[in-house]
């Protein structure tokens, strides 16, 4: 079972004061730490767990600049067998379509049975790449998958629906599965685990190695144009409800009723 996991390298904005970069096309990322997209962390873990069960090879690929190497190495420490960092300066400013095209080029020449991605990325939450990539590879795909089982050239899996419903699905492989968070318990990556994989080469591939031209990637290849990034307008401030718990609870219920949140 050869599994390719597409990993996104995203800025960690959780505790940062976000500011909009000059030109208003993006946030300022200079001071931000980057890390693996949390959804993809589950995808990598799932791939490794499948490999541990049925054998095979796990390949992780990330479309991001050189600094993403540390995060890719952590994927190797999680149990992936090889990792590729795909980037050329021309790729700057691309959209989901560009990323899917790049990944499709990368994957097409490889022997694979399963492609795993996270359903969404925490930074832009567009959720485009998985579906488009599957279309480009001409394989079936599914999203928000919360349990995967592989048997006899088939993949069966559960999808989480609204209201706590589960949908059970089966498809032929190769296929692309975009996972939900929580489908496994990702292992911890210790400093030693990273050290153990320090000697594994993480090849860098650019548009030339992929056989693409500059017009297919980056801003030139994008089909979506970023107009503007802006911070939400400041609200009027919050109301702090003081008093004893029972009083403040009553007041809260009153407000919710007033605003029409309660029937």
């Amino acid at each position: 079972m050869n599994i390719i996991v597409c990993m996104k390298w995203i800025p960690d904005t959780s505790e940062a004061d976000l500011t909009v970069a000059a030109g208003a096309k993006d946030i300022k990322k200079d001071d931000l730490d980057h890390d693996i997209n949390d959804w993809d962390r589950f995808a990598v873990e799932e791939a490794v767990q499948i490999k541990e069960k049925v054998g095979g090879k796990v390949t992780v690929v990330c479309v991001a600049p050189e600094d993403s190497e540390e995060t890719l190495r952590e994927c190797l420490a999680r149990g992936a067998d090889e990792a590729f960092q795909v980037w050329s300066d021309e790729m700057e400013g691309g959209d989901g379509y560009c990323t899917a095209s790049i990944l499709a080029k990368f994957i097409k020449n490889r022997d694979f049975d399963l492609v795993l991605t996270g359903t969404l990325a925490e930074d832009d939450g567009a959720g485009q790449v998985g579906g488009m990539l599957a279309a480009m590879l001409d394989i079936p795909s599914s999203t928000l998958v919360s349990k995967i089982e592989i048997h006899d050239k088939k993949a069966s899996f559960l999808r989480e629906l609204e209201g706590g419903l589960y949908e059970s699905v089966e498809t032929d492989i190769p296929c692309l599965i975009s996972v939900a968070t929580g489908l496994n318990e990702p292992r911890f990556v210790s400093i030693r685990a990273v050290r153990k994989v320090a000697s594994i080469d993480i090849p860098n591939m650019g548009i030339e190695e992929l056989g693409m031209d500059a017009g297919q990637v980056g801003q030139a290849g994008a089909r979506l144009v970023m107009e503007e990034v802006s911070l939400p307008p400041e609200g009027e401030g919050a109301e702090i409800i003081a008093g004893k718990p029972e009083e403040s609870a009553a007041r809260l219920a009153e407000i919710l009723k007033e605003k029409g949140a309660l029937g």
């Binding site: 318990e185 990702p186 292992r187 911890f188 210790s190 685990a193």
Partner: peptide, 8 residues
């Protein structure tokens, strides 16, 4: 920890 097993 070396095996990656630590409470989430």
């Amino acid at each position: 920890i070396d095996r990656g097993e630590i409470p989430q």
